[in-house]
Computed example of a mutant assay.
Amino acid sequence: MTRQYLEAPPSSRATESLEGEPASAPIEISDVLEAGSLYALNLTGHGFVLLSESSARSLSAALIWAAQQPVQRLTVFADAVGVTDAPSATAARPEDLARWAQYFLVADQPIEVRLIEGTGSTGIQPGPVPPASVPPERDSVLEQHLIDEGLEVVHEHGVTRGELLGLEVARLVVWPQESGGDNALHLEVGVGRFDRDAHAAVRPDESPIDDLAKTVSILRDHRFPGAPTHAVQRLSRERWLRALLLDQPSLVGAHSLTALGMTTEPSGLRDAFPAAAIGSTEDGTPLVVVCSCGVDLALLPLAADLREQVNSEAVLLLAVPEQDHHVATKWLASMLRQPAELIAIAVGWG
């Protein structure tokens, strides 16, 4: 199933075959379901899905469609258009899509992923799991300033952040010499990159330590359990949930937990994106815990990918707020080759 196929005249579609499936009857364009980022066709139990966006979320949408049909086999087509160098929740290379797909089964059958090339397609081999990120450069003095303000110190994707209930308030940044810096770590204050730049522009003569104290004081007025609705209170809730579990690991049956970055990074502060931690139970069973809020279709492919990177034998726990214990997430979890447990958490953040 390709765009060319969908756009071809009905007379030509009637005699074509679809990746080895004989077209015993004419296939009308009305037979193809268009839903968001995918086009789907159930051809006598074999599901064909064309993704207009190659992403973890689109793959999950295809899996949910397959479960609803149901189909006995699933073939997913990815378009070469929009191929990116680095996978994320919203964009992925075909080999990343194939790797994520291999973590799932449809009717106990593996999922085939193919790349569209002209009017045909070729099978895609799964790419390797990305290596773990390099630990960040550390500075105990600067980190102590974060601790003194009551922030969580998180080391993730090669960066040290200071977070207030999961919301980034500051980070340690190397100022490169080629840009006029000193190649040393500096404390930068702000909620995300643009806010850090704004702080530097508006308060160039203020000590970052004083700036940090003022900023944390302002944010604390809006970010606490049960706080009235406010933009600050709604940002980075996946990371807020993780902060809760790091403080109370017993909520997911863990003895201890440590924050860990996913195999991909979020594209922006406002984007829904899972937050993870690793740890173990009292008896030493390894755990990978991935937190999510709302109904984020990227959750299952990215969570399975992280388990594969960290420890393929670890127990995978998916932590979500009680109100987000959604049937779509349950379906996707049930389709994993290796099981995952969905845990509802009482968050109390209003």
Rank of each mutant, 00 (worst) to 15 (best):
G47M: 07
F48K: 08
V49I: 11
L50K: 09
L50V: 03
L51V: 07
L51G: 06
L51F: 13
S52F: 12
S52P: 04
S52W: 07
S52K: 12
S52M: 12
E53S: 08
S54P: 06
S55R: 05
S55T: 09
A56S: 14
R57I: 04
R57K: 15
R57C: 00
S58D: 09
L59I: 06
L59M: 06
A61G: 09
A61I: 10
A61S: 15
A62E: 10
A62K: 13
A62I: 13
L63P: 03
L63I: 09
L63K: 07
I64T: 11
I64F: 15
I64Q: 12
W65M: 03
A66R: 01
A67N: 08
A67F: 07
A67L: 03
Q68F: 05
Q68D: 14
Q69V: 07
P70M: 09
P70F: 14
V71D: 02
V71M: 07
R73E: 08
R73S: 12
L74I: 02
L74N: 02
L74T: 01
T75A: 00
V76A: 10
V76T: 07
F77Q: 05
F77C: 03
A78Y: 02
A78D: 01
D79Q: 12
A80N: 08
A80Q: 13
A80T: 04
A80S: 14
V81N: 13
V81C: 11
V81G: 08
V81F: 10
G82I: 04
G82Q: 11
G82A: 08
V83P: 06
V83L: 14
T84P: 00
T84E: 11
T84C: 15
T84N: 10
T84G: 01
T84K: 15
D85P: 01
A86Y: 12
P87N: 13
P87I: 11
P87A: 13
S88N: 08
A89P: 00
A89W: 01
A89C: 00
A89Q: 00
T90C: 01
T90R: 15
T90P: 00
A91Y: 07
A91P: 00
R93M: 12
P94L: 07
P94W: 09
L97T: 01
L97Y: 00
L97G: 02
A98Q: 00
R99P: 09
R99V: 09
W100C: 09
W100Y: 10
W100R: 05
A101L: 02
Q102R: 13
Q102A: 12
Q102G: 07
Q102P: 05
Y103N: 12
Y103S: 14
Y103E: 03
Y103H: 14
F104P: 00
L105R: 15
V106E: 03
V106C: 02
V106Q: 01
A107E: 11
A107Q: 01
A107C: 09
A107F: 08
D108N: 11
D108Q: 14
Q109V: 07
Q109G: 04
Q109D: 08
P110W: 12
I111W: 05
E112W: 02
E112S: 11
E112F: 09
E112N: 11
E112M: 13
V113Q: 01
V113N: 03
V113L: 11
V113M: 04
R114F: 06
R114A: 05
R114D: 04
L115W: 05
